[in-house]
Amino acid sequence: MSNKRTKPFSIKYLPGFTPVALVCFVLLYAPIVTMVVYSFNSGQSVALFEDFSVAWYFAAAENELVQEAALRSLIIAAFASGIATVLATMAALGTTRTKNYPGRTLIYLMINQPLMVPEVVTAVALLIFFASIKVATGYSGLAYLILAHAAFCVPFAYLPIRARMEGMDRALEIAAADLYATPWKTFRRVTLPLVAPGIAAGAMLAFVISLDDVIITEFVKSAGQDTLPTYMLGQLRRAVTPEVNAISSALLAVTVILLTAFFLLSGRNSPVGK
């Protein structure tokens, strides 16, 4: 008789899958964690951890260029995500829970276009387009960046809103109409409150997407219009400066916070945007 105890047979077990998965998570997080750890390093080097310090965070925060870029990032993200969310909500109302109609596929394609076209191509297109407008009007303010950001934020705002609307019982709005609510009142009192979590989630995603953008901003921005990401890219030499490291870690923290909020808002739905 053998003393060896065999493990009970598990249906879902596949040899090697669990170790690969765990290695994968380690590989995913090791660089990020290293980055965060070294952002608290007092020294210049990323090779040598000298002492715990938040000096680089202060250095970054006191840098006027960083302040301006951060403020610019926030302004653009706020406007762009706001515009994108309002327009995406309207578009979701016009495209969900209705029989097909002529042109709906075109609307879908247009809305999801930023997800399909390589960003660098859109960036080039906007560069050409805005360059001629800049020449024609002489205006070179933030509006170009806000317009460009709002446009590529639309699908990210649209998807969670649409998902939420499709999950909503159509009978509720019919019931409201039956109870003397005009279409506008039905929207205000029934549709909007029930879709609100989806709208909040969409706005949040749009905000994060705008905040993160590098390529389109890099191409569209006029001189002195750096956002935080383009500023960081511009600072890159052979290595990442400890200051940029600190900014990166701070942005990472913002992402984690927003993402946690998103998870809580949308319940068990994963924010698989694409």
Binding site: D169, A176, A177, L179, Y180, A181, L194
Partner: peptide, 29 residues
Amino acid sequence: PPFKRPINTVFQSYALFPHLTVGQNVGFG
């Protein structure tokens, strides 16, 4: 349109507004 007809419906699925209380539902019309 339905909101101009003095006719009300009891729906098969009830269609009660989930974000409103019982009182607010009844008072909605």
